[in-house]
Amino acid sequence: MKTRDEVTPGGYRPRRDAFWFARSRAYTVFVLRELTSVFVAWTVVFLLLLVDAVLGGSLPEFAALAARPWMIALNVLALAATCFHAITFLNLAPRATVVRLDGYRLPAWLIQGGNHSLWLAVSAVVAFFVLRGFQ
């Protein structure tokens, strides 16, 4: 839906398409990528609740809350959103950083590959310490 053009004392304001993000696939993907931030915030809140439960001795109650169907559904969405965030954010690195080795510019795929390898390595280390650790 478009609003009318406006001419105000502050100047000309062209009409605005309220559904501009639906005009092209690129715009929709852009908005979806930006909206992953809401799930990033939710995941942090969820982890703070977990930390509070661990430190407060109420882990069983937290586990029961986390096992509710709506909570699992929310966290599946959060997982998809944080993975989408990770892939798109790590892929952006070559546009923000130019790495040169003896005058040779590293290709984008090498930087992206390094980032994704680091992501896998960090995930493996975190999973190791959470699930097992040095026992």
Partner: peptide, 22 residues
């Protein structure tokens, strides 16, 4: 924050939010 979130959050929400509750 974008880098930290990309590296750490997916594995944490996978473990504590999906795999353990399921």
């Amino acid at each position: 924050g974008g880098v930290v979130a990309a590296l750490l959050l997916p594995v944490l929400v996978l473990l504590f939010g999906v795999l353990m509750p399921l």
